[in-house]
């Protein structure tokens, strides 16, 4: 198992956001994580990347090693990388400069955003492209994409999906894909879909199309009740 999350709980200002998450991902798998707003998906993404602001109980194992209390930069060295949903701007630091500092692998990015300050006045699409190229430059083993598809038009979505498929999935990089959109999953064909509601994973399924149909028709909560999805591991 590449990543194993056991009974993971997280509190923020006294409120429990993650209420005991169990998750297993094998090397090379693509795992999709769906859920309504405020279900805890982004918190889980941040916690897996090692954000120090969260107080965590439970265990996170990576390649069998306990990384629950490992600093974020050390997780990056192990190959765990997060693509931010809303990355902050860093004034005065050009994207090319940041890439130069963090790169563990050469990437050819010809976008004009290279000469601009990181995420400053970037459009939604430019932010996603910037995130993607930073991820590639870090030569990861496990990537957590937090809604990299949001705010992209269909063409850009296809481009981004193509790059993710070619540069990561086809090369055996493990992916956790947080999304609201079924479109991107058509391109990436996840091995397993998890649905998260209220800080808990309420179902797991291999067929993402069926999950989407149910969500569209009955909403997220139905996943829990629907017998098709009752095969929680």
């Amino acid at each position: 198992m590449l990543l194993e999350v056991q009974k993971l709980k997280v509190k923020v200002e006294g409120k429990e956001i993650l209420k005991g998450i169990d998750l297993k991902i094998k090397k090379g798998e693509v795992l999709a994580l769906l859920g309504p707003n405020a279900s805890g998906k982004s918190t889980l993404a941040k916690v897996l990347s090692g954000d120090i602001k969260y107080k965590v109980s439970g265990k996170i194992l990576f390649n069998g090693k306990d990384i629950t209390n490992l600093l974020p930069e050390k997780r990056v060295k192990l190959g765990i990388v997060l693509s931010w949903q809303n990355p902050p701007a860093i004034k005065g630091v050009k994207l090319s400069n940041l890439l130069e500092k963090i790169s563990r692998k050469k990437v050819n990015l010809k976008e004009d955003i290279l000469d601009r300050d990181v995420n400053l006045n970037f459009s939604g699409g430019e932010k996603k492209v910037s995130e993607l190229y930073q991820i590639l430059a870090l030569n990861p083993k496990l990537v957590i994409f937090d809604e990299i598809d949001s705010g992209l038009d269909l063409e850009k979505l296809k481009d981004v999906s193509r790059i993710i498929k070619k540069e990561l999935v086809d090369k055996g990089v493990t992916i956790i894909f947080i999304t609201h959109s079924g479109e991107v999953l058509k391109f990436l064909k996840p091995n397993v879909v998890n649905v998260m509601v209220g800080g808990r994973i309420i179902c797991r399924q291999k067929d993402f199309k069926k999950v989407f149909k149910t969500i569209k028709r009955y909403g997220y909560d139905r996943c829990k009740k629907y017998p098709l999805f009752a095969n929680k591991s």
Partner: peptide, 17 residues
């Protein structure tokens, strides 16, 4: 936090900012 998830330690991140 952002820069630390890019592999920079706290000191390197502060210096860059």
């Amino acid at each position: 936090s952002y820069l630390r998830t890019r592999g920079l330690n706290e000191k390197q991140a502060i210096s860059l900012i």
